[in-house]
Design a protein around this nucleic acid. Structure first.
Ligand SMILES: [Mn+2]
Ligand SMILES: [Mn+2]
Ligand SMILES: [Zn+2]
Ligand SMILES: [Zn+2]
Lengths: 130, 130
DNA sequence: ATTTTATTGCGACATTATCGCAATTAAGGA
DNA sequence: TCCTTAATTGCGATAATGTCGCAATAAAAT
């Protein structure tokens, strides 16, 4: 199945590339100026994931977040790492530390999804009065 | 808010206690003989989590799984550990290995949610012909 | 036995994500 | 440039998961 270059695709990819944190569907919908349909955004994102251009992170809020892979590679995060989700501001960012998982014999790992949620330093300092 | 001992509560807790793996709402609904309302099951589970009797695990399928805490304590898994979700049979089980997460300065961890999904040894061996 | 109020059942609702289908449109070739 | 093909989009419907309001029920205390 050949991929085509569409405006929606370009807009979403540019957004993810330039974003320092992983973005959920509604974040993307909210940020992007072009009016792209909800289903289309999901379909574009799913295609990116199939093509391994983007990686999908499932938050402990049950929502999907999407991050441009090269961001991770640049930061030497090719391997498994946790993501931190701030329950205050919603940011989902990489934690720069490789995680190794030891599976029992005969187990096959297909996906790694490590999430830590809490309060990021920005929100924590705001809360305690600058 | 005082807790009361109801049949629903007892049935669900017994099920979780005796289960070797974490259970989702629909697993519980399916297994239990008594006919308990969906909303009630969720409310009972949420109360268990508030009371720290049960812990909530969010799968990379976006669904919530619930596990009796003492199970973990017995296995010396009081601390953070991954759970393995088999995409074939649906089992969600503990991985007996403590995980330490290093957060940047000023970050506060409120929840840990580590999931690895794939194929468990049972399903893998079945697939490759016994 | 009576009172208090935590809990339940039911239906409605919210949210997130997917799907079917007809209409568009990118891409490649004539 | 025009045509053809099929990947992509928009729209509405649908699925799946989980929560909420409210009246009815029932556990526990008096
Ligand atoms: Mn990352
Ligand atoms: Mn566990
Ligand atoms: Zn924050
Ligand atoms: Zn399995």
């Amino acid at each position: 199945m050949k991929r085509r270059n569409t405006d929606s695709k370009k807009a979403i990819l540019e957004l993810l590339e330039s974003s320092k944190s992983a973005l959920s569907h509604d974040m993307i919908q909210g940020i992007i100026s072009r009016n792209i349909d909800r289903a289309t955004i999901y379909r574009v994102l799913n295609r990116f994931c199939e093509d391994k251009i983007v990686r999908r992170i499932v938050g402990d809020d049950g929502k999907q977040y999407f991050a441009y892979c090269i961001n991770c590679v640049e930061k030497k995060q090719k391997n498994n790492h946790f993501h931190f989700r701030c329950t205050q501001c919603g940011k989902v960012e990489c934690l720069n530390e490789e995680v190794k998982v030891a599976l029992p014999d005969g187990y096959e790992m297909h996906n790694f999804n490590g999430i830590v949620s809490g309060i990021c330093s920005d929100c924590a300092s705001l809360r305690s009065g600058e």
